[in-house]
Write a protein that binds this DNA or RNA. Structure first.
Lengths: 222, 222
DNA sequence: GAAATAGTGTCTGTTAGACAATATTTC
DNA sequence: GAAATATTGTCTAACAGACACTATTTC
C-alpha cells in the first residue's frame, strides 16, 4: 500500500468590507484541464488552499510557503490548528490558521478568492468541519488573548477595535465597558495620531506586544 | 528523496503515588540489539511512546492502538496535542495527549515505564518541549474544563479531587473555596457512598457528564 | 445647527480570595 | 480523649454588566 501523502492546508481569515472573510481556492480535482481559460467552471466547488509538504521542509515552513503563494507577502499571524487524518482520507492534512490585516492584503495569487463568512460556498463536509473549528478557535482566542490585533492595522481607533470584536463574535458589545476593559488591561497605548472621518476624529491606539498577551482564565474548576 | 514517515506519539499522564506521572519507553535507536535481555542499557535514554501510522488507519485509531499496546486496556481520555515536523526531523509526528485514572492502570506493556514528573529522565530536546507543552495544556484545561475527572476513579471525595488539582497545578488550594466552587458549579453530584479512612469518613461524589463541562472564560480582551 | 461619530462615569450584583472553628470517625 | 480527616460560613475587594449624556468634528 502506498504511504499517505502529507498536505499542509491553511484557513486564512481577514476582515474585509466589515465582514470576516475566508480565502478559498477552486477545487479542480476530477476536472479535465480546461485550456480555454483559468476561470473555474460553475459548480466546481471551493476548498481550503493546500500544498503537499516537500521532503526537505518543515511544516511551518510549508505553511508560510503556501501563504506566500496566496498573498504575495507572507506577513501573517500563523498558528497550527489541527491535524486531520481519518482512515478513509488518502492524505494526512496539517491545517494552519492564519490572520491577515486588511491593509496588508493584496490581490490573492492564482485563483484564490475571498468569501465572507455569511456567504461561504460549500467546502465539503470535511472542509466545513475545519472551518467551523477554525472560527471557534478564533472566537475563543479573541476572548483570552491578544489575537484580535492581528486583523487590524498598526494603528487603530477604539471603535475599529470594537468593531473587529463584534464582527468575529457576532454580537454587539457595550462601548463603555469595552473601552474601560481594553484601556485598563494595558494591552494598547495611545498614539498622537487621529483618524479623521465624518464625525469627531478618533484617537488612534497601538498594540503593545510587550504587555501580557494572555489573560488568566477564571478558575471554575476549581 | 524519500517521503517523510508519519509517526503517532502519545504523552500519557496518570496520577500515581501522589504525583503526576508520565509513561516513557526506552530509546533503543542506535543500539546494537542486546540479546542477553530486554532491560534497556544504562544511558540508553527514554522517549515518548510512538508508532508509525499504518496506511489504512486513521490518526486517532493509531493513537488508540498505541494506548492498547501500552496499557492492555485502551480506556483513556485522548486528545490531539500538536503535530511536530521540522525540516531536520526525518518524521512528522502527530502527538496525542492521554489521561488514565490510576485505578484503571495495569502494568504497562513492553518496556514502558512510569516516571514522576519531578524525576523525568532527559527525553531529548524535542521530547522536553513536547512534555512541557503537554503539561501546560493539562494545567490550562484543568482550569476551564472538566478534564481533571479523567484522572480520578468514578467516585471520589472532595479531598481527592482537590489533591488532584494541587498536584497538577503545583500549588496549594484553599479547601473552603475549592469546595464551594466545585459544588456551586454543579459539575459533581453526591453519592450515598463514603470513603473510610483514618479520620472522619468522606462523602463520595460523582462527575456529572451531563453538566456543562466548559467554563465561559472571562473576557478581558475585550 | 444638524448629523455623525468619539468619548466619558456610576451603580449594582456576583464572585474570587482570605480566613478558623466545629464535626465525625478511629485507635 | 487524642489524632486524623471532613465539613461549614463570613467578610472584603475587584470586576462584569447595565445604563445615557456630553464633546468634537464635518457639511
Amino acid at each position: 500500500m502506498i504511504a499517505r501523502s502529507l498536505i499542509v492546508q491553511v484557513v486564512l481569515f481577514s476582515l474585509r468590507d466589515d465582514a470576516l472573510q475566508v480565502l478559498l481556492v477552486p477545487d479542480l480535482s476530477g476536472l479535465v484541464p480546461d485550456l480555454s481559460g483559468l476561470v473555474p467552471r460553475e459548480g466546481a466547488g471551493w476548498q481550503l488552499p493546500g500544498q503537499e509538504l516537500h521532503p526537505d521542509e518543515g511544516l511551518e515552513e510549508a505553511a508560510n510557503r503556501l501563504l506566500g503563494g496566496l498573498l504575495e507577502r507572507r506577513e501573517a499571524y500563523l498558528e497550527q490548528l489541527y491535524t486531520y487524518g481519518s482512515a478513509q482520507s488518502p492524505a494526512v492534512r496539517v491545517v494552519y490558521f492564519a490572520l491577515v490585516p486588511a491593509d496588508r492584503l493584496q490581490a490573492p495569487g492564482g485563483l484564490a478568492h475571498w468569501f465572507p463568512r455569511a456567504a461561504l460556498p460549500d467546502p465539503g463536509p470535511e472542509g466545513a468541519e475545519i472551518l467551523a473549528y477554525a472560527l471557534r478557535r478564533l472566537r475563543y482566542k479573541l476572548e483570552y488573548s491578544a489575537v484580535g490585533f492581528q486583523l487590524l492595522p498598526e494603528e487603530f481607533s477604539l471603535s475599529e477595535l470594537q468593531h473587529t470584536y463584534e464582527v468575529i463574535l457576532g454580537e454587539k458589545l457595550d462601548k463603555r465597558n469595552f473601552r474601560r476593559r481594553m484601556l485598563l488591561s494595558g494591552i494598547i497605548e495611545p498614539t498622537v495620531h487621529k483618524r479623521l472621518g465624518e464625525g469627531r476624529p478618533a484617537r488612534l491606539y497601538r498594540y503593545r506586544p510587550d504587555a501580557v498577551a494572555e489573560v488568566k482564565v477564571r478558575r471554575l474548576f476549581p
